[in-house]
C-alpha cells in the first residue's frame, strides 16, 4: 500500500529542528517507499535533502506566518494530498499534538501518537508506544489508507547526513486569514533559554528535598547551567513553588527522553518515573539507599545532594 512517507519537518529561527533530521533518517531506514518532507512556512530547506528527503513539499502563505490550528490543518491536508504519501510522520511536538488529531478526524485517517519505535512490517509502518504512563508498551497498527504517526523526540540517534538533494515542490493550500481561527497574540519565553524539556538532551531535576526555592535556584539551576542542561522538577517541588509548572517531569507534567537525566533528591515515585524512565542514562543522588529511583538509575550516589551537587559542578568545570 505504500506510497511513501511524508515527514513534517519543524523549523526554529529559519532552520530545521533536530527532530526533523531524526524523523527523516528514521523514515529512510524504514524502507517503506520514498521519503519526502513537509515544511510549513518559509525557511532554509537545504539540509533536508542530505538527511533523506527526495522532495520538499513547502506550503507558504501569509496566513501561516504564525501558528493557528485552522490554517495549519489545511496546509497539512494539502501537502499530504500533493505528495500522495500513505504515511505522515511527525515529532510528538506541541504543534503536532494540536494539528494531527484534527487532521485525522478530517481525513478519517488512523493516528498513532507518542511512538518510541517505528518498524516496517511487510511494507507497512507499525508503531510501538508507551501506555499507562510507561508501565506497558503496545504495538499500534493503522488500518486506514493513510496513517499518521508521531515519534517522541530522541527516540533514534541522529547521524551525519548521508548527502543528496531535494526538489522543492511549492504547495498552494489556499489558506487565507479566514482560516486563522485561534490567533496567537503574543509569544513569551517560559523561563530559560535552554532547550525545551521534551526535546532536551540533558536534564537536571530537583525534588522536594531542596526544601525551598532559594536552594533550588542555588543548587539545581547552576549545575544544569554547567552541563548545558534543562531544569526539571518533581511534582512535589513544583507544588511547593520551588520550580515552575512547565518544569514538572512526570505523568502530569512533561514526558522527557534525554540522553542524560540527573535526579537530585527525588524518590522515584511511579508518577515521576512515568515522565523520565526512557532516559538513556539516569543518575540518581539520594541520601536514602532504599529510594526506588536507584532501581532505575544507571549510576547512583548515596549521599546528601547539598554536598554532591556542588562537588559535581566543580568537577565538571575542572574537566
Amino acid at each position: 500500500m505504500s506510497n511513501g512517507i511524508l515527514v513534517f519537518c519543524e523549523f526554529e529561527a529559519g532552520r530545521p529542528r533536530k527532530t526533523a533530521f531524526e524523523l527523516l533518517q528514521r523514515a529512510v531506514a524504514l524502507g517503506a517507499g520514498p521519503v519526502s518532507a513537509l515544511v510549513v512556512g518559509d525557511g532554509d530547506t537545504s539540509a533536508l535533502g542530505p538527511n533523506g528527503a527526495g522532495k520538499v513539499y513547502q506550503v507558504s502563505a501569509p496566513a501561516l506566518a504564525s501558528y493557528s490550528t485552522g490554517a495549519y490543518t489545511k496546509a497539512f491536508a494539502a501537502a499530504l494530498a500533493a505528495s500522495g504519501a500513505s504515511t505522515l510522520l511527525a515529532s510528538a511536538s506541541s504543534v503536532a499534538r494540536d494539528v494531527l488529531p484534527r487532521l485525522a478526524a478530517r481525513l478519517g485517517a488512523g493516528l498513532a501518537v507518542e511512538c518510541t519505535e517505528l518498524r516496517n512490517v511487510g511494507g507497512k509502518v507499525v508503531g510501538r508506544r508507551p501506555v499507562y504512563a510507561g508501565k506497558a508498551l503496545v504495538d499500534v497498527t493503522i488500518n486506514s489508507p493513510v496513517g499518521i504517526f508521531t515519534l517522541r523526540p530522541n527516540s533514534y540517534p541522529v547521524v551525519a547526513a548521508a548527502g543528496g538533494s531535494a526538489t522543492v515542490v511549492p504547495v498552494d493550500a489556499q489558506v487565507s486569514d479566514s482560516d486563522v481561527d485561534v490567533r496567537v497574540t503574543d509569544t513569551v519565553a517560559a523561563s530559560s533559554t535552554t532547550a525545551d524539556l521534551t526535546e532536551a538532551e540533558r536534564i537536571v531535576s530537583g525534588g522536594r528535598s531542596l526544601k525551598g526555592k532559594e536552594q533550588f535556584d542555588a543548587v539545581v539551576r547552576p549545575l544544569a547551567a554547567a552541563l548545558g542542561a534543562t531544569v526539571g522538577a518533581s511534582r512535589a517541588a513544583v507544588d511547593a513553588g520551588y520550580a515552575g509548572h512547565g518544569e514538572q517531569v512526570g505523568q502530569t507534567g512533561k514526558v522527557v527522553n534525554p540522553s542524560l537525566y540527573i535526579a537530585l533528591g527525588i524518590s522515584g515515585a511511579i508518577q515521576h518515573l512515568a515522565g523520565m524512565r526512557t532516559s538513556r542514562v539516569i543518575v540518581a543522588v539520594n541520601k536514602d539507599a532504599e529510594a526506588p529511583i536507584f532501581q532505575y538509575a544507571t549510576y547512583g550516589i548515596v549521599g546528601d545532594l547539598f554536598e554532591v551537587a556542588p562537588l559535581l559542578q566543580a568537577e565538571l568545570s575542572r574537566s
Binding site: 485561534v182 503574543d186 523561563s191 525545551d196
Partner: peptide, 13 residues
Amino acid sequence: RAAGGGMREVVAG
C-alpha cells in the same frame, strides 16, 4: 499554553 522551544503562547479566539 506552553508552545515548543520553551516558549509560551497567548491566543485569542
